[in-house]
Computed example of a mutant assay.
Amino acid sequence: MENNIKNKVIVITGASSGLGEETAKYLAEKGAIVVLGARRKDKLEQIVSDINAKSGTALYQVTDVTSKVQVKALVDKAVTTYGKIDVLINNAGIMPIAPMSEVRTDEWDSMIDINIKGVLYGIAAALPIFQKQESGHFINLGSVAGIKVFSPGGTVYSGTKYAVRAISEGLRHEVGRNIRTTTIEPGAIDSELKLSTNHQESAVGVNEFYKLAIPASSVARAIAFAIEQPADVDINEIVIRPTIQDF
């Protein structure tokens, strides 16, 4: 089934580290053309350089997913350069954990802007192209926190990931004839996500929880599995977590 990845043009947001970086490298090894978006130019340059040095094909565009203009520009760059886009991986996300009683509305706004609106902007940028092509694949990064509320402290984060799950399922219903939709719902995965918590007491709990994390490459393989299926097979949802994680 590797041929179902080879030469596919795959756009990945949040690609400068963690799941995005590992997924980009893994898919490039399988022959995909990867177009990477994130805010940190230096990180993107290094990842693209690493991929191309190993005979892969990659390019990047600095992208803040809170800007619909920048997300559209990322997708348009892929189409302009390679003539198509086969897969959009909406991966960018943050997870600042804190009790709601802290009323950290700036963090709530950021989670909504990145975790929800960033996904919607990706869909808005790619959907018209997928419809014109009569093919395409959305892969949206949710979380086990979008299945069960991560509490205490993760209420708003869980709310954003419940939203991603709902948006993905609704999208599947609306456009599923030729366009595939997959939600990937990771548990504790080793990435920079755990670093976005600034509330000191919550950060201690987050760091303790992430001691059981499994590598980001685990998610990369799950994403590849969804992509490499035949065109008439739509893997709608994958929940992946450490065997010792009990929720």
Rank of each mutant, 00 (worst) to 15 (best):
E192L: 09
D190N: 12
E29L: 11
S218Y: 11
G31H: 09
I12W: 02
Q245A: 12
G176W: 05
E174P: 08
K211P: 04
I129W: 03
S55H: 09
S55Y: 02
I240T: 04
I240L: 15
T23L: 05
G154M: 08
S49N: 14
Y60D: 03
S151Q: 15
I5G: 02
D106M: 09
N91D: 12
V65S: 02
K68F: 05
V204K: 15
R104P: 00
F209Q: 14
A188L: 14
D234C: 11
V35H: 01
K117G: 01
I114N: 00
L19G: 04
I139L: 10
T243R: 08
N178V: 00
Q70C: 07
E201R: 12
N3V: 06
G142L: 09
G153Y: 03
G136V: 08
F247K: 13
V11W: 09
I89M: 14
F130S: 03
L88R: 06
R104M: 15
V48A: 13
E102A: 15
Q245L: 10
V233E: 03
A58M: 06
I227Y: 07
E185I: 00
D106A: 15
I189G: 01
I97L: 13
V204Q: 14
I116M: 15
L195E: 14
A15T: 06
A213G: 06
G93Y: 09
I238W: 07
R39W: 04
P242H: 12
V144I: 15
F225V: 10
S158N: 07
S67C: 10
I5R: 02
M111C: 11
V71C: 11
V175C: 12
V219W: 01
I223Y: 11
V87K: 07
A163E: 04
A78Y: 09
V65M: 04
V62S: 03
K30M: 13
V204R: 14
K30H: 11
L195A: 13
I94F: 05
A231W: 01
A24K: 00
I5H: 02
T183K: 00
I114C: 01
P242C: 12
I12A: 04
V11M: 11
N52P: 05
I89H: 09
T23V: 05
I139S: 07
I10R: 03
F130M: 03
K72L: 13
R241E: 08
L74Q: 09
A58T: 08
S168H: 02
I47W: 09
W108S: 05
L120K: 12
A216G: 15
S158I: 06
A58N: 07
I214C: 03
K25R: 14
Y157S: 08
S135Y: 10
T182N: 06
R39C: 02
G153P: 05
A163G: 04
D76V: 01
A73D: 12
E174N: 11
Q200L: 14
N91Y: 07
V206T: 11
I114R: 00
T57D: 06
I47D: 08
V71T: 15
N115R: 02
L88Y: 06
V71D: 09
Y210T: 04
D50A: 11
P96E: 13
P152C: 07
I223P: 08
K77G: 00
E45L: 12
D42K: 12
V48K: 13
N140Q: 06
A92M: 01
L44T: 07
V34K: 01
A145H: 05
H173V: 12
G93H: 10
N115V: 00
